[in-house]
Design a protein around this nucleic acid. Structure first.
Ligand code: MN
Ligand code: MN
Ligand code: ZN
Ligand code: ZN
Lengths: 136, 136
DNA sequence: TTCTAGTTTATAATAATTCTAAACTAGAAA
DNA sequence: TTTCTAGTTTAGAATTATTATAAACTAGAA
Protein backbone atom coordinates (compact mmCIF):
# COMPACT_ATOMS: atom_id res chain seq x y z
CA UNK A 1 0.00 0.00 0.00
CA UNK A 2 3.01 2.26 -0.02
CA UNK A 3 3.13 2.73 -3.75
CA UNK A 4 -0.57 3.40 -3.68
CA UNK A 5 -0.03 6.23 -1.23
CA UNK A 6 2.64 7.70 -3.43
CA UNK A 7 0.22 7.68 -6.33
CA UNK A 8 -2.56 9.16 -4.22
CA UNK A 9 -0.27 11.99 -3.12
CA UNK A 10 0.94 12.57 -6.64
CA UNK A 11 -2.64 12.98 -7.81
CA UNK A 12 -3.65 15.19 -4.89
CA UNK A 13 -0.66 17.45 -5.56
CA UNK A 14 -2.12 18.24 -8.96
CA UNK A 15 -5.65 18.74 -7.70
CA UNK A 16 -6.77 15.43 -9.11
CA UNK A 17 -9.01 13.37 -6.89
CA UNK A 18 -7.52 9.95 -6.44
CA UNK A 19 -10.48 7.99 -7.71
CA UNK A 20 -10.11 4.26 -8.08
CA UNK A 21 -10.02 4.61 -11.85
CA UNK A 22 -7.20 7.16 -11.77
CA UNK A 23 -5.22 5.16 -9.25
CA UNK A 24 -5.60 2.02 -11.34
CA UNK A 25 -4.46 3.80 -14.48
CA UNK A 26 -1.61 5.52 -12.65
CA UNK A 27 -0.37 2.17 -11.35
CA UNK A 28 -0.40 0.79 -14.83
CA UNK A 29 1.52 3.78 -16.13
CA UNK A 30 3.95 4.73 -13.39
CA UNK A 31 4.54 1.65 -11.30
CA UNK A 32 7.33 0.13 -13.31
CA UNK A 33 10.88 1.38 -13.21
CA UNK A 34 10.93 1.45 -16.97
CA UNK A 35 9.14 4.02 -19.03
CA UNK A 36 7.21 3.25 -22.20
CA UNK A 37 5.19 4.64 -25.07
CA UNK A 38 1.51 3.98 -25.58
CA UNK A 39 -1.65 5.05 -27.31
CA UNK A 40 -5.11 5.30 -25.76
CA UNK A 41 -5.94 2.13 -27.63
CA UNK A 42 -3.08 0.12 -26.14
CA UNK A 43 -3.68 1.54 -22.67
CA UNK A 44 -7.33 0.63 -22.90
CA UNK A 45 -6.42 -2.95 -23.80
CA UNK A 46 -4.01 -3.12 -20.89
CA UNK A 47 -6.54 -1.84 -18.37
CA UNK A 48 -9.61 -3.64 -19.66
CA UNK A 49 -8.22 -7.02 -20.59
CA UNK A 50 -10.16 -10.16 -21.46
CA UNK A 51 -13.46 -8.43 -21.91
CA UNK A 52 -13.62 -7.08 -18.37
CA UNK A 53 -14.24 -3.34 -18.38
CA UNK A 54 -12.69 -1.78 -15.32
CA UNK A 55 -12.56 1.76 -16.63
CA UNK A 56 -14.60 3.24 -19.43
CA UNK A 57 -12.89 4.41 -22.59
CA UNK A 58 -14.10 7.96 -21.92
CA UNK A 59 -12.33 7.93 -18.57
CA UNK A 60 -9.17 6.61 -20.14
CA UNK A 61 -9.21 9.55 -22.54
CA UNK A 62 -10.00 11.98 -19.70
CA UNK A 63 -7.30 10.58 -17.48
CA UNK A 64 -4.58 10.56 -20.12
CA UNK A 65 -5.46 14.17 -20.85
CA UNK A 66 -5.43 15.05 -17.13
CA UNK A 67 -2.09 13.32 -16.55
CA UNK A 68 -0.61 15.05 -19.58
CA UNK A 69 -1.78 18.46 -18.37
CA UNK A 70 -0.36 17.70 -14.95
CA UNK A 71 2.98 16.91 -16.56
CA UNK A 72 2.98 13.21 -15.73
CA UNK A 73 2.86 12.21 -19.37
CA UNK A 74 4.24 13.66 -22.54
CA UNK A 75 2.49 13.59 -25.86
CA UNK A 76 4.66 12.55 -28.77
CA UNK A 77 4.03 13.61 -32.32
CA UNK A 78 4.93 10.93 -34.78
CA UNK A 79 2.21 9.14 -36.55
CA UNK A 80 -0.72 10.83 -38.12
CA UNK A 81 -4.22 10.04 -36.95
CA UNK A 82 -3.21 8.69 -33.60
CA UNK A 83 -1.78 10.23 -30.47
CA UNK A 84 1.20 8.64 -28.79
CA UNK A 85 2.12 9.23 -25.18
CA UNK A 86 5.29 8.71 -23.23
CA UNK A 87 5.69 7.92 -19.55
CA UNK A 88 9.24 9.22 -19.85
CA UNK A 89 8.81 12.92 -19.21
CA UNK A 90 12.49 13.75 -19.20
CA UNK A 91 13.79 15.60 -22.21
CA UNK A 92 14.83 13.02 -24.77
CA UNK A 93 14.61 12.06 -28.41
CA UNK A 94 13.21 9.20 -30.49
CA UNK A 95 13.78 6.71 -33.19
CA UNK A 96 10.59 6.09 -35.08
CA UNK A 97 10.44 2.87 -37.04
CA UNK A 98 8.34 3.46 -40.11
CA UNK A 99 7.73 -0.24 -40.58
CA UNK A 100 6.59 -1.29 -37.13
CA UNK A 101 5.47 2.22 -36.12
CA UNK A 102 7.42 1.74 -32.92
CA UNK A 103 9.14 4.42 -30.91
CA UNK A 104 12.43 3.95 -29.12
CA UNK A 105 13.99 6.41 -26.74
CA UNK A 106 17.24 8.18 -27.46
CA UNK A 107 18.79 9.55 -24.32
CA UNK A 108 19.19 13.30 -24.29
CA UNK A 109 22.96 13.02 -24.13
CA UNK A 110 23.09 10.79 -27.19
CA UNK A 111 22.41 13.75 -29.43
CA UNK A 112 24.44 16.90 -29.30
CA UNK A 113 23.26 20.04 -30.98
CA UNK A 114 26.10 22.44 -31.51
CA UNK A 115 24.06 25.10 -33.23
CA UNK A 116 20.42 26.03 -32.88
CA UNK A 117 18.56 28.99 -34.36
CA UNK A 118 17.12 31.84 -32.34
CA UNK A 119 13.34 31.72 -32.17
CA UNK A 120 11.21 34.43 -33.82
CA UNK A 121 10.86 37.65 -31.85
CA UNK A 122 8.60 37.47 -28.85
CA UNK A 123 8.64 33.70 -28.83
CA UNK A 124 10.67 31.40 -26.70
CA UNK A 125 11.68 27.81 -27.04
CA UNK A 126 9.46 25.45 -25.15
CA UNK A 127 11.21 22.30 -26.18
CA UNK A 128 13.28 20.73 -28.89
CA UNK A 129 12.71 17.26 -30.17
CA UNK A 130 14.63 15.16 -32.60
CA UNK A 131 12.90 12.33 -34.37
CA UNK A 132 15.06 10.00 -36.38
CA UNK A 133 13.00 7.96 -38.75
CA UNK A 134 14.46 4.57 -39.47
CA UNK A 135 13.63 1.67 -41.73
CA UNK A 136 15.07 -1.64 -42.89
CA UNK B 1 1.99 27.10 -71.24
CA UNK B 2 5.60 26.35 -70.47
CA UNK B 3 5.08 25.88 -66.79
CA UNK B 4 2.14 23.67 -67.59
CA UNK B 5 4.39 21.46 -69.69
CA UNK B 6 6.86 21.21 -66.87
CA UNK B 7 4.11 20.08 -64.56
CA UNK B 8 2.77 17.61 -67.12
CA UNK B 9 6.22 16.10 -67.52
CA UNK B 10 6.76 15.98 -63.80
CA UNK B 11 3.54 14.02 -63.38
CA UNK B 12 4.27 11.69 -66.30
CA UNK B 13 7.70 10.94 -64.87
CA UNK B 14 6.01 9.47 -61.81
CA UNK B 15 3.43 7.53 -63.76
CA UNK B 16 0.70 9.97 -62.83
CA UNK B 17 -1.66 10.94 -65.62
CA UNK B 18 -1.75 14.69 -65.95
CA UNK B 19 -5.46 15.11 -65.47
CA UNK B 20 -6.83 18.61 -65.28
CA UNK B 21 -7.41 18.20 -61.56
CA UNK B 22 -3.84 17.15 -60.88
CA UNK B 23 -2.40 19.89 -63.04
CA UNK B 24 -4.56 22.47 -61.29
CA UNK B 25 -3.47 21.27 -57.86
CA UNK B 26 0.17 21.01 -58.94
CA UNK B 27 0.09 24.62 -60.16
CA UNK B 28 -1.29 25.73 -56.86
CA UNK B 29 1.39 23.83 -54.98
CA UNK B 30 4.52 24.14 -57.09
CA UNK B 31 4.16 27.25 -59.18
CA UNK B 32 5.50 29.74 -56.71
CA UNK B 33 9.17 30.19 -55.99
CA UNK B 34 8.41 30.01 -52.31
CA UNK B 35 7.50 26.84 -50.51
CA UNK B 36 4.79 26.57 -47.89
CA UNK B 37 2.99 24.34 -45.42
CA UNK B 38 -0.61 23.30 -45.75
CA UNK B 39 -3.31 20.91 -44.68
CA UNK B 40 -5.88 19.23 -46.89
CA UNK B 41 -8.39 21.66 -45.46
CA UNK B 42 -6.43 24.77 -46.44
CA UNK B 43 -5.57 23.36 -49.86
CA UNK B 44 -9.21 22.57 -50.46
CA UNK B 45 -10.16 26.15 -49.64
CA UNK B 46 -7.48 27.47 -51.97
CA UNK B 47 -8.59 25.29 -54.87
CA UNK B 48 -12.33 25.55 -54.37
CA UNK B 49 -12.77 29.14 -53.40
CA UNK B 50 -16.01 31.09 -53.19
CA UNK B 51 -18.24 28.08 -53.34
CA UNK B 52 -17.04 26.92 -56.74
CA UNK B 53 -15.96 23.30 -56.61
CA UNK B 54 -13.27 22.68 -59.16
CA UNK B 55 -11.91 19.51 -57.62
CA UNK B 56 -13.67 17.18 -55.23
CA UNK B 57 -12.37 16.76 -51.71
CA UNK B 58 -11.76 13.06 -52.38
CA UNK B 59 -9.49 13.98 -55.27
CA UNK B 60 -7.63 16.48 -53.17
CA UNK B 61 -6.93 13.72 -50.66
CA UNK B 62 -5.95 11.32 -53.45
CA UNK B 63 -3.70 13.83 -55.11
CA UNK B 64 -1.90 14.92 -51.96
CA UNK B 65 -1.28 11.27 -51.21
CA UNK B 66 -0.06 10.63 -54.77
CA UNK B 67 2.24 13.67 -54.74
CA UNK B 68 3.61 12.64 -51.35
CA UNK B 69 4.34 9.11 -52.57
CA UNK B 70 6.00 10.55 -55.66
CA UNK B 71 8.22 12.64 -53.42
CA UNK B 72 6.81 16.01 -54.47
CA UNK B 73 5.49 16.73 -51.00
CA UNK B 74 6.62 15.91 -47.53
CA UNK B 75 4.35 15.07 -44.67
CA UNK B 76 5.15 16.85 -41.44
CA UNK B 77 4.32 15.47 -38.05
CA UNK B 78 3.36 18.14 -35.60
CA UNK B 79 -0.20 18.42 -34.59
CA UNK B 80 -2.41 15.56 -33.61
CA UNK B 81 -5.60 14.99 -35.52
CA UNK B 82 -4.49 16.73 -38.66
CA UNK B 83 -1.88 16.08 -41.30
CA UNK B 84 0.41 18.86 -42.39
CA UNK B 85 2.27 18.87 -45.68
CA UNK B 86 5.25 20.78 -46.95
CA UNK B 87 6.08 21.80 -50.49
CA UNK B 88 9.67 22.16 -49.35
CA UNK B 89 11.03 18.68 -49.86
CA UNK B 90 14.62 19.53 -49.05
CA UNK B 91 15.91 18.32 -45.72
CA UNK B 92 15.12 20.99 -43.15
CA UNK B 93 13.71 21.61 -39.70
CA UNK B 94 10.79 23.48 -38.14
CA UNK B 95 9.61 25.83 -35.52
CA UNK B 96 6.14 24.91 -34.41
CA UNK B 97 4.19 27.64 -32.70
CA UNK B 98 1.93 26.04 -30.13
CA UNK B 99 -0.32 29.08 -30.01
CA UNK B 100 -1.00 29.69 -33.68
CA UNK B 101 -0.22 26.11 -34.72
CA UNK B 102 1.97 27.52 -37.44
CA UNK B 103 5.08 25.97 -38.89
CA UNK B 104 8.14 27.92 -39.94
CA UNK B 105 11.09 26.49 -41.78
CA UNK B 106 14.53 26.28 -40.27
CA UNK B 107 17.18 25.86 -42.93
CA UNK B 108 19.16 22.68 -42.67
CA UNK B 109 22.38 24.59 -42.01
CA UNK B 110 20.83 26.49 -39.11
CA UNK B 111 21.04 23.43 -36.94
CA UNK B 112 24.20 21.49 -36.47
CA UNK B 113 24.19 18.06 -34.90
CA UNK B 114 27.60 17.12 -33.66
CA UNK B 115 26.59 13.76 -32.29
CA UNK B 116 23.90 11.36 -33.38
CA UNK B 117 23.24 7.81 -32.21
CA UNK B 118 23.65 4.73 -34.34
CA UNK B 119 20.34 3.18 -35.33
CA UNK B 120 19.29 -0.26 -34.06
CA UNK B 121 20.82 -3.23 -35.89
CA UNK B 122 19.40 -3.88 -39.31
CA UNK B 123 17.83 -0.46 -39.51
CA UNK B 124 19.07 2.61 -41.26
CA UNK B 125 18.32 6.26 -40.89
CA UNK B 126 15.76 7.51 -43.35
CA UNK B 127 15.72 11.06 -42.12
CA UNK B 128 16.23 13.21 -39.10
CA UNK B 129 13.94 16.02 -38.14
CA UNK B 130 14.16 18.62 -35.45
CA UNK B 131 11.01 20.32 -34.26
CA UNK B 132 11.47 23.27 -31.95
CA UNK B 133 8.25 24.08 -30.23
CA UNK B 134 7.89 27.72 -29.36
CA UNK B 135 5.40 29.84 -27.49
CA UNK B 136 4.99 33.39 -26.21
C1' DT C 1 -24.11 11.34 8.04
C1' DT C 2 -24.98 14.82 4.71
C1' DC C 3 -23.89 17.36 0.83
C1' DT C 4 -21.91 18.75 -3.39
C1' DA C 5 -18.23 19.58 -6.69
C1' DG C 6 -15.70 16.69 -9.17
C1' DT C 7 -15.75 12.43 -11.69
C1' DT C 8 -17.33 8.54 -14.38
C1' DT C 9 -19.96 6.63 -17.86
C1' DA C 10 -22.85 5.38 -21.94
C1' DT C 11 -23.78 7.35 -25.76
C1' DA C 12 -24.05 10.88 -29.28
C1' DA C 13 -21.54 14.06 -31.99
C1' DT C 14 -17.68 15.67 -34.58
C1' DA C 15 -13.60 15.72 -37.44
C1' DA C 16 -10.32 13.82 -40.39
C1' DT C 17 -9.61 10.41 -43.40
C1' DT C 18 -10.44 6.27 -46.18
C1' DC C 19 -13.44 3.30 -48.82
C1' DT C 20 -16.77 2.13 -52.52
C1' DA C 21 -18.52 1.73 -56.74
C1' DA C 22 -20.40 4.13 -60.53
C1' DA C 23 -19.34 7.64 -64.06
C1' DC C 24 -15.80 9.71 -66.60
C1' DT C 25 -11.43 10.48 -69.46
C1' DA C 26 -6.47 10.33 -71.14
C1' DG C 27 -4.24 8.57 -74.41
C1' DA C 28 -2.66 4.11 -76.71
C1' DA C 29 -4.07 1.40 -80.34
C1' DA C 30 -6.94 0.33 -84.19
C1' DT D 1 -10.60 9.71 -86.08
C1' DT D 2 -12.82 6.49 -83.45
C1' DT D 3 -12.58 2.84 -80.16
C1' DC D 4 -11.28 0.97 -76.00
C1' DT D 5 -9.87 0.52 -71.35
C1' DA D 6 -7.00 1.28 -67.35
C1' DG D 7 -6.59 4.91 -64.58
C1' DT D 8 -9.05 8.65 -62.41
C1' DT D 9 -12.68 11.37 -60.36
C1' DT D 10 -16.57 11.80 -57.63
C1' DA D 11 -20.53 11.71 -54.20
C1' DG D 12 -21.53 9.65 -50.59
C1' DA D 13 -21.00 6.01 -47.10
C1' DA D 14 -17.98 4.06 -43.72
C1' DT D 15 -14.35 4.10 -40.46
C1' DT D 16 -11.38 5.79 -36.84
C1' DA D 17 -9.91 8.72 -33.32
C1' DT D 18 -11.42 11.92 -30.39
C1' DT D 19 -14.50 15.17 -27.91
C1' DA D 20 -19.00 16.56 -26.03
C1' DT D 21 -23.22 15.74 -23.32
C1' DA D 22 -25.77 14.94 -19.53
C1' DA D 23 -27.28 11.76 -16.12
C1' DA D 24 -25.60 8.81 -12.32
C1' DC D 25 -22.11 8.28 -9.00
C1' DT D 26 -18.57 9.27 -5.26
C1' DA D 27 -14.63 11.43 -2.56
C1' DG D 28 -14.10 13.75 1.09
C1' DA D 29 -15.06 18.31 3.48
C1' DA D 30 -18.17 19.86 6.78
MN1 MN E 1 -8.41 10.83 -38.07
MN1 MN F 1 -9.22 12.38 -35.31
ZN1 ZN G 1 10.21 8.37 -25.24
ZN1 ZN H 1 8.95 23.15 -43.94
Amino acid sequence: MNQKNEIVNKLRTSGLRPTKQRVLIAKSLFDSDKTFHFTVETLNKKINKNGVTKVSLATIYNTVEAFTSAGYLKEILTSKNKSYYDTNIKSHHHFYDEGSKELTDIRYSQIRLSKIPTPPKGKKIKNLEVVIRIQK
